[in-house]
Design a protein around this nucleic acid. Structure first.
Lengths: 237, 237
DNA sequence: ACAACATTTTTGTGATCACAATAATTTATA
DNA sequence: TATAAATTATTGTGATCACAAAAATGTTGT
């Protein structure tokens, strides 16, 4: 149990009119989403409060909020940890992403206008530029922005919070997996998605989104390689 | 603004080894789920604390948790309210339920054994018994239990928390709508679902679940009648 | 009678403290 | 030396308080 493994916080911007709780929440969320905290790592209120130079109170609230989003897990002994991954759970999370996000894309399609399409193309171009660097975090962040921009075209959207919950649950594990993976093999499904949008083809859009999600996880194409990453992620604690 | 409209709390059971926060959470969640709090109703920490005979602290945490689940909405002025419904949002919530729950049912199907099927039949029988009374709350609770029992057959389930979030968002509005509706017209789609399970027909099961959800909302079959209920629900504040 | 201003009250936020439960460490025992 | 028991340290929970922002109320001027 390397309970004391340090956490590389990327401190969120601390603008005015943002409460300390919101700032702590954003900071912790970012740490979970981009795998800065290892699965199984125990998080204590006082430790985080000291680390972030705030009182325990905002940390308490932020932790509870993240637990409500299934990003953290409150154990029976009231300890808060980053949940561990299993092969079956990983599979369920991927399947849930495909079901929910293809649905969100379909419901967003009628609302996508020329402006939003250009926005999507712009983000996709940024992804191509960043692809060379090979860093996991900025690519992952841009990829999320692409999906978010697509789904939020629907002004009555209700699924994004649910989708973000799934992203959060996959985050800690993806970081570990991406370290052992060359991303270069990835085909650009975003282009296919945008073609489907232009031709107003809901079915093709759903296929493209599902393919994009599936390929993001194709490092774990065989059960053996998946199990290997899971063992790796759980070895440290 | 009948800000002071009373809230009929059904107090959750206060067993030992349950924290006050958990108890308050369960109580408030129940109130939201079964429409005891009108949409638009502002909730203040101190008011609820006094009402429930607890200190403000557990109420604070419970409210934040419910807000994280999209059951409550934190406004810009930091006030907490039960979100108001719109026709478009209502439609999106129904569509999301159908997409997510039919997916959950499909993923659960392989795990359903004889024992669980009997459990489902038992719950369905209870629903038939309660149907006569006409009360919204117990029928709704049993209906939820039926769906929950189905989805949790899958031991690696990850979608139930997301589904419950959708239920919570629909809760306050359903109560208002059900008051103007005779439920007797409802066909029993649960029987169809169980037949699909027995024949291991995933597609038929998905259809049955979708039909069950759709029919639960068929009081709002025309846009006009839906708008009528929405106006009614928002008139009070 | 109604708008604009000043005053009072109420509210969420965040800090600090007490306490019981849990975990970690030390000491005692075989 | 290994295991059990006792002690110490740490933790989450919940209560209380101070404070600034916001809402409600009261007051004034036209």
């Amino acid at each position: 149990m390397d309970k004391n493994s340090p956490i590389e916080f990327t401190l969120a911007e601390r603008t005015a009119s943002v409460t300390i709780t919101q700032w702590v929440y954003a900071t912790l969320r970012n740490a979970v989403m981009y795998g800065k905290i290892l699965p199984g790592r125990a998080l204590t209120i006082r430790e985080l409060a000291k680390e972030l130079n705030v009182s325990p109170m905002p940390v308490r609230e932020a932790l509870r909020q993240l637990a409500a989003e299934n990003a953290l897990e409150i154990q029976g002994n009231r300890r808060v940890i980053v949940p561990k991954m299993t092969a079956m759970k990983f599979n369920e999370l991927c399947q849930a992403r495909m079901a929910l996000e293809s649905h969100a894309a379909e419901r967003a399609l009628p609302y996508i206008d020329e402006t939003r399409l250009q926005l999507l193309q712009q983000i996709d171009a940024q992804i191509d530029d960043t692809q060379i660097s090979g860093n996991h975090e900025p690519i992952s962040a841009l990829n999320q922005e692409f999906h978010r921009t697509l789904y939020t075209a629907n002004p009555h959207q209700v699924t994004l919070p649910l989708i973000e919950s799934l992203w959060l649950q996959l985050g800690p594990f993806m970081k570990l997996a991406s370290a052992h993976l060359e991303l270069s093999t990835q085909v650009d499904r975003h282009t296919e998605a945008m073609a489907a949008i232009e031709s107003r083809d809901a079915f093709a859009l759903q296929l493209a989104i599902k393919a994009d999600i599936r390929e993001g996880f194709n490092f774990a194409s065989t059960p053996e390689s998946l199990q290997c990453f899971i063992d790796e992620s759980n070895r440290h604690n």
